[in-house]
Amino acid sequence: MKPNFDQFKDIPGTTIFTIEKAREGFQLNEFCMSLRTQENRDRFHADERKYLDEWEMTEEQKKAVLDRDFQRMLDLGGNVYFLSKIFAAEGLSYVQAVSTMTDMNVQEYQAMMLAGGRSPDGWRSKKERGEA
């Protein structure tokens, strides 16, 4: 069966981690995996730039990590489960990190979740939203 990755492009505000994105983000995600040990977390936090330079990541990917720009990291092939190693190492929860990718601050995001979460209505299609 021929893959159809284009079918995911109409979902608003969503980056599907396809095998193609996985190839693009391999080194970025490898860097994230390295943060599974306390020794590496300490080395990363001591000098982030130096630690990042040990990986064959693109300059854009390194900048996105330094800026903690999680949406940019997704755009460059990162996957949120990998990226979670960056924010978990800093004591941040998924809610805290994930809210930075939305147009809400963390309090607003938490309030939305407590009220039942984001309704899919209006969020099913970029075409419907006039974004495509």
């Binding site: 608003p12 969503t14 980056t15 990718m101 147009d103 939305m112 979460g117 984001r118 899919p120 969020w123």
Partner: peptide, 13 residues
């Protein structure tokens, strides 16, 4: 249902 990434994060259905 859950989405933990992007501008659509927080989706629940």
């Amino acid at each position: 249902s859950h989405q933990i990434q992007g501008a659509r994060a927080g989706l629940i259905n």
